[in-house]
Simulated assay, not measured.
Amino acid sequence: MLGWTLMFLVIAVIAGLFGFTGIAGAAAGIAKIIFFIFVVLLVISLLANAIRGKGPRA
């Protein structure tokens, strides 16, 4: 999912350089949404691991 975020970010930057404001805005919006979904899933994963009490493998 982080790969999709980076792809949409690159599309937004390239489109912004060429002046396609609608495409750049859409790609940046999608990248932002996917990024926040990734952050929420990361936090949920960290909390689930903390609740289970299992430490990292040595």
Rank of each mutant, 00 (worst) to 15 (best):
A48V: 14
G19Y: 04
A28D: 03
I30P: 01
R57I: 14
P56Q: 12
I51G: 04
A58Q: 07
G22P: 01
I14Y: 07
W4K: 15
G53S: 00
I23A: 14
I23G: 04
V40R: 02
T21V: 09
A15E: 06
L47E: 02
F8E: 09
I11C: 05
F8W: 11
A48N: 10
V10T: 13
A26T: 14
T21R: 12
L6A: 15
V13A: 13
I14G: 03
G29I: 01
I11K: 01
L9V: 08
I37D: 06
G3C: 09
R52E: 11
I34R: 06
L6F: 13
K54N: 08
T21E: 12
A58T: 11
V40N: 05
M1S: 11
L41Y: 08
A24R: 07
R57Y: 08
L47Q: 01
G3K: 14
A58G: 13
A48E: 08
L46H: 06
K54L: 08
R57N: 10
K54F: 06
N49T: 10
V39C: 05
L2E: 15
P56E: 15
G53R: 05
V43P: 00
G16D: 06
A48Q: 10
V10P: 00
I34T: 05
G22R: 03
G16P: 08
F8M: 13
V39S: 02
V43F: 04
V13C: 08
F36H: 04
A15G: 05
F8C: 09
W4Y: 15
F20L: 15
L6V: 13
L47I: 11
S45T: 14
R57Q: 09
K54S: 06
I51K: 14
I44T: 07
F20T: 02
A31K: 00
K54V: 09
I37N: 02
I11R: 01
A58V: 11
V40L: 12
W4C: 12
S45Q: 10
L46V: 14
V43C: 01
L41F: 12
F18K: 08
F35K: 00
K54H: 07
I51T: 07
G19Q: 06
V40A: 11
G22V: 12
A26G: 01
I23F: 13
I11Q: 03
V43K: 03
I30F: 09
L42H: 01
A58C: 00
I11G: 00
A15Y: 01
L9Y: 07
A28V: 03
R57W: 05
I37S: 00
L6E: 15
A26P: 03
L46Q: 11
G3N: 15
M7G: 09
A28I: 04
I37P: 00
M1H: 09
F8R: 05
V43R: 01
A24T: 02
I30A: 13
A24V: 05
A58K: 07
L2Q: 15
A27C: 12
W4G: 11
I34M: 13
W4M: 14
V39I: 12
I33D: 04
I33S: 03
F38L: 12
I14C: 11
F38A: 14
L2V: 02
R57V: 15
V13T: 11
I37E: 04
A27M: 05
G19D: 09
A28W: 05
I44N: 05
T21G: 02
I30D: 00
I33M: 07
A24G: 10
A12Y: 02
A48P: 01
N49A: 11
S45G: 14
V40P: 01
M1C: 06
A50Y: 07
L46T: 12
I23P: 04
T21L: 07
G16H: 03
